[in-house]
Design a protein around this nucleic acid. Structure first.
Lengths: 214, 214
DNA sequence: TCGGATAGTCAACAAATGTTTACTGAAATT
DNA sequence: AATTTCAGTAAACATTTGTTGACTATCCGA
């Protein structure tokens, strides 16, 4: 690449990384100021506008960057699901390895999924929907779930995605101080996904059998 | 009550309510300024300090207020669980009715559970844990879950709580614009909880039977 | 080699923020 | 009736914020 544009990309990356670093202090994205970010990046405030229109746009870029990581992880997981036996264990392992390798990005996603900026929130919501749709397609191919109709599968995949992502904070906290949670978040997550998948396997329709009246 | 302290409590409540009103605009708690809140409340900035030390303390008060609402809902749910048949339907109905009646409070909880202020976040996390423990005690009394040990129950209740709360944003959005979600969030939530409870019922231990290898 | 493009600097601006200090007046206490 | 208490006001403060315009130095294409 040309050293001109390369340098620019490098600064842009520094701005994004500085934002993640500042958020490591436990603060949310909306609590950061433009000047703070540039200060952390070792750049003058005005330089910010060479890369982003405002903080919201930087947030969107951060969503995209994080999503890229996530997409990579998901594809590994989906590839792995084709193998036989212990798909959940292996998938969760791969997913969590990736979370560990991209801790800051996933912290950003976990913290801003319902957070301050509505633009960022909406972007993350769209990513969710996309992943949920992908997962639904995979689930539809599983032989032990053939008895589920489209709506069942949609709700099931949504539930699985929500279970994974709502466990993200536990996992991320556990990475930093491994004594916080009562259980190991990774095995707990596997446990939870098993509950769900077993339930899906024994699902008898919305009315349920008489033994399914809960 | 004496008209002196009563008036003070009223102003305090106005401050809290003003905060919720401002957050209705789609912004997060950490995006609000002290002056903004007092402006909305029709009070001079300095008056804020007669009630709260800083915005974080107001946030904690808001957690407590919201928690009170939630406790009320939960108690209704637990009482309802003692009745026979269709416990999930009825429980979810009651819970969601309460969410609807206290929309702003639950929006606050949903949005700030991982959000900006670490003090607020931690307070909400503690509430979660408490509810999860309560639910665990209830689950332990259910005859169809007698085969689960303490760890199973802990993880199960955590999963149920997470499923409910991660669905809160869907439910709240649906209240404002009932065409956003692909499905009705309420029935979807019932569906999800059924998946989980059925899975719990058929749970055969962490190693599972040979038909439970996922 | 020249001339334009441009990433980043510098300085300045109005506006908004959190916080403090002294005050006012009504309610509570004595 | 006199005095204290205190919720809310008024004004001022030092900072910080987002944004702008003119600049500088470097890289790029001609």
């Amino acid at each position: 690449m040309l050293p001109r544009a390369e340098k620019k990309l490098q600064t842009r990356h520094t701005l994004l990384q500085s934002t993640l670093d500042l958020m490591d202090g436990g603060r949310g994205f909306c609590g950061l100021s433009l000047r703070e970010v540039t200060r952390q990046a070792g750049v003058v405030p005005a330089a910010f506008y060479r890369h982003f229109e405002d903080m919201d746009q930087l947030g969107l870029a951060l969503v995209q960057e994080s999503t890229q990581s996530l997409l990579t992880a998901i594809r590994q997981v989906r590839h792995n699901e084709l193998e036989v036996g212990g798909a959940i264990d292996a998938s969760v392992r791969i997913f969590l390895d990736h979370v560990e390798a991209n801790r800051q990005h996933f912290m950003f996603l976990a913290r801003e999924q319902f957070g301050g900026s509505s633009l960022v929130r909406q972007a993350i919501t769209n990513v969710y929907r996309q992943f949920s749709n992908d997962l639904m397609a995979d689930l539809a191919d599983m032989s032990r779930l053939k008895h589920l109709d489209r709506e069942d599968l949609a709700i099931l995949s949504d539930l699985l995605i929500k279970a994974v992502f709502s466990s993200l904070p536990d996992v991320l906290d556990h990475l930093e101080s491994p004594a916080t949670a009562p259980f190991d978040p990774q095995s707990a997550l596997v446990h939870k996904l098993r509950f769900i998948m077993i339930g899906a396997k024994h699902w008898l329709g919305i009315r349920g059998g008489k033994d399914q009246r809960l």
